Simulated assay, not measured.
Amino acid sequence: MPRVADHDQRRAQIARAFQRLLAAEGFAGVSFSRVAAEAGISVGLIQHYFTGKDALLRFAYEDAVSRMSRRVRARVHEGEAARLPTAEVLLASLAELLPLDEERNVEYRVRQGLQTQALPHTDLADVARKAGRDLLGYVTAAVGNGVRRGEVEPDVDAVLAARMILATTQGLADQVALSGADTFSAPDLLRRVITTVFADPSTRKTI
C-alpha cells in the first residue's frame, strides 16, 4: 500500500527549514527555492502546503512560539512535581527563552526576525500579541501563586512585577545573542531579578 503522507510532519519539516535559514541569514535570504533546498523537497511541495510566503511566515512563527511554550510548560510541570518554590519554577521556565543552546538560539532568532515583519503583517502581529499576552499572563499568575503561598508580599503589584521580570528576560536574551553566553551568567542575573519579588520577608522590597 502507498504510504499516507503525514501532513503535520511535512509542514513542520518545511517550517524548520525556513527557521534555520532565517536564523542564519535573515529574512532577506529566505525564498521558497532556498527553503526547498534546505528541506530536501521540491518548491511545488511547499506550494502544496503554503499558498505564499506570508502563510509560511505565520506557520513558522506559530511553530517557534509553540515549541517554546511546550518547553516552558514542561519546566513548570517538572518543578511543580518536585514541589520546588515558585521562584525556582519561574526561573527554570523563563530560562527557556534565553538562547543558551543551538535550539533556543534558532528560536530566539526566528522570533526576533519574524517580530520585525509583524508591523506590516496583521496576521503575524496577532500571533506576536497573543504570545506576549500568554507569557505575561503566565508570569503574573506565578507571582499571584507566590502571594498565596507566602513567597511574595501581598501588596506586590503582580502585573508590574511580571513586566519587570519579562523585560529583564528579553534584555538578557538580547545580550546573550549579541555577546555570547560565556561572557556572563544570564540565569544568575535573572535569578537576582526574580528574587526581588520572591525574597525573604526581611529583605524584600515592595514593587
Rank of each mutant, 00 (worst) to 15 (best):
A23R: 06
S202H: 12
I207Q: 03
S202F: 11
A74L: 12
H48A: 01
R11D: 11
M1N: 08
V193Q: 09
T195M: 01
T116A: 14
G113I: 05
V89Q: 01
T51D: 05
A167F: 02
K205I: 15
F198E: 11
S179E: 15
R71F: 04
A92I: 01
G144M: 10
A92E: 07
E107R: 15
P85L: 09
A36W: 08
P187H: 02
D6R: 06
Y108R: 13
E62H: 00
E38R: 12
H7T: 15
H77E: 13
A39I: 10
L90F: 02
L57D: 12
L45W: 00
Y49Q: 05
G113W: 03
R191H: 12
G52A: 08
E102P: 08
A162P: 05
R67K: 11
D63F: 10
R71W: 04
V30Y: 03
G180C: 03
F27V: 14
Q175H: 11
V72D: 10
V143S: 08
D174A: 08
V197S: 00
R3H: 07
R3S: 04
A55C: 01
R204T: 13
V106H: 00
V197D: 02
L22E: 04
T168K: 03
P154D: 02
L189I: 09
Q170D: 08
S69A: 12
V35D: 07
R149M: 11
V89S: 03
A141D: 15
D63P: 02
R67Q: 14
V127K: 11
I194E: 05
L160T: 15
A173N: 02
